[in-house]
Design a protein around this nucleic acid. Structure first.
Lengths: 256, 256
DNA sequence: ACCATACGTTCCAGAAAATGGAATTTCTTG
DNA sequence: CAAGAAATTCCATTTTCTGGAACGTATGGT
């Protein structure tokens, strides 16, 4: 399953990878099957990961799930890893090309989290906090993630996140959102028509990566503009450029 | 209570965390300084991480940087089960509302374990890391678990765990604790009046989940505050909000 | 309520790996 | 091209890991 076996005091990490791949909490028995490792060994690994805060037990006391420290580590990796510089260059070229601010976001399970952003007027200066968050239903990127997510997960998620109204245009009904998501899947890109902030429009394209031979949309890049300077129709003309950049970004998430 | 050391065959991960935290490639010498670990050991850890694809060498041949496998793991972690992210959002909203740090704990059979914690933006704060453990008898959450546990199990447990004194206010007699637990069941919430740490007060509400058609309290959320800023009476006013959030958290544990 | 079965946990002696001070090699710099 | 710094290797000792077997504990069926 994994390309290379973990050795050198890292074998317990296999459990973390397995749990991340399964995308849901798992029992000891399931992990034993998945990993083909003796039961007492997996048990010991689980205890080690738990004692260190990387895993925690689901309240059912049986299954294990990925814990807060692992999430923190994941965020730190994405912000600190060298691929980030590559991605910023791609973003910068796009910004130079279209003349508006662009951003790269990732879906953190619930919300859209900014990984990076390049402003149009200050190409060398970054004036935002990586890690800012935006609700999924009211942003072009977020709707993209929702659109391309497995249906079962989407349903579960939409049952639990509130469709908070941000502006007059925010889609706050499940049916309107469902229709929009379908349209996004048809078009292959997503828009934000002042749904998050008044006066701000946005076009986003998906960044697909292949994980465990499954194509999923983990990230998105978007062009944001004040509607007074570029309306949706104007931004839509940039979609091919956006998609090309998205393809380049996808490569930075794969191997090197 | 603070950062816990990595043990159990996970020590090399400290290097990964360090590199992620530094946000840029680092040399062996830098990592040795940063980690305060002997040079040959760090070297071995680096080789282990490299051989496994989590780290790679910067083109300069000297520095190490985070590699593709780590990125993939990070993405998989963030993409995974939305439960964590949902719970964190609920906590975050509560924290914004009440202005004090809140935490989510589960009961692991003996101790209270932190699943997550969100700090308020106040300068004065006590810091608990997720994964920390706290004795059941001297914390608001722990007493909640004890209160709502089946009596037979409670008796057995109380015979096993020592009622260690943490502060002057810690309940160290079985009778005082029994009385407290009864009061908790009557009120539906629990308090910690500087019973674990001097100067720290806390109010906790139960998170009930239905498991095997049995309603049980396996998790709890709590608001913690320095007594100088919010005393018990002040915190008690937040109980309805706390209970509402507890209900939302419960929902995130239900779906498969 | 009972048993059958699966699941989780603990035990422990042999096997394997980690540890770090010291020595050695390789890179850097003036 | 030497001097100093950094990286790498060596290796005896200590420590941890491993996994078959045995032991508890929960679950599901009758």
């Amino acid at each position: 399953m994994t390309d290379r076996d973990l050795t050198g005091g890292l074998k317990p990490l296999g459990v973390l990878e397995a749990l991340a791949a399964m995308q849901q909490p798992a029992t000891l028995a399931q992990l034993v099957t998945y990993l083909s490792v003796p039961k007492p060994t997996v048990h010991r690994w689980l205890k080690a990961l738990e004692s260190v805060g990387l895993l925690s037990r689901h309240p059912d006391g049986r299954r294990y799930e990925i814990a807060a420290r692992a999430t923190q580590l994941a965020v730190a990796i994405l912000l600190g890893e060298p691929g980030r510089a590559l991605r910023r260059n791609i973003l910068r070229r796009l910004v130079d090309d279209v003349g508006e601010a662009c951003n790269l976001t990732i879906f953190d399970g619930t919300d859209v989290t900014y990984l990076d952003r390049v402003e149009a007027n200050w190409p060398l200066r970054i004036s935002f906090q990586p890690g800012s968050r935006v609700p999924a239903h009211s942003s072009a990127s977020g709707k993209l993630f929702l659109a391309y997510m497995p249906p079962s997960r989407r349903e579960k998620l939409l049952r639990q996140i509130p469709l908070t109204r941000c502006t007059e245009n925010t889609l706050t009904s499940a049916s309107a959102l469902a229709k929009e998501l379908q349209s996004i899947r048809r078009l292959g890109y997503s828009t934000d028509r002042e749904e998050y902030l008044d006066g701000l429009v946005c076009v986003a394209a998906p960044v697909f990566t292949t994980m465990q031979s499954r194509r999923s949309c983990v990230a998105a890049i978007a062009i944001q503009a004040p509607v007074t300077r570029n309306d949706i129709d104007a931004l839509t003309k940039f979609v091919p450029k956006l998609q090309k950049a998205a393809g380049e970004i996808a490569a930075t998430f794969e191997g090197s």
